[in-house]
Amino acid sequence: MKVFTLLRRTIFAALLVPAAALVYWTLTGEAGPNPIDFITDTTGTTALSCLVLSLTVTPLRRLSGRNELIKLRRMLGLYAFFYACLHVLTWSVLDWFFDWESMAADIVKRPFITLGMTTFLLLLPLAITSTEGWIRRLGRRWTRLHRLVYVAAITATIHFWWVVKVDFRQPRLWALALSVLLGFRAWWTLQARVPRSSAGSA
């Protein structure tokens, strides 16, 4: 088996671990006295981790020159969506048990929930159009559409920041990681523009 295939399968299996662990911990009582809260937190942070991980693929590919890494991007993005789905399901089923009225009120009145829901709605079209068929059909528009992932990563991080009461160490780390990853892209975009204009003036 090629090393890359092995890597891909390992990552695939590793990212199933949080979901499996949640089921196991909940059944064995190790999720603690407030399992719903624990599941909400874990699915949320795992979704954010996957989302930020998916943003490392392009920089890693450019830095390493290994183009096959691109194949990891969709998997990581879909994992982010998978955990985001679990997160939203936990909130609507376990936390509120389909109390639509309260949920709607929360989405409108609580900024952190508004942002969480926004993030989910941003990820939804990206997940749907992640197939080969959609990539072909949308052509260049696909690339433009999937830039929404930057917005989703930002709203997800702010969502996390606003949930926290006073201990901002974790959201601060995520914000830092995200800034670095988006910073790479901003730098490259600028770099791509500068030579062209300087070439023109020469």
Partner: peptide
């Protein structure tokens, strides 16, 4: 009186499923 970030109208008693 809600906390600015969440509602105080209901609560989860630990060990219970429904709020």
């Amino acid at each position: 009186v809600d906390h600015p970030r969440w509602s105080q109208a209901s609560e989860r008693r630990l060990g219970e499923f429904l709020r």
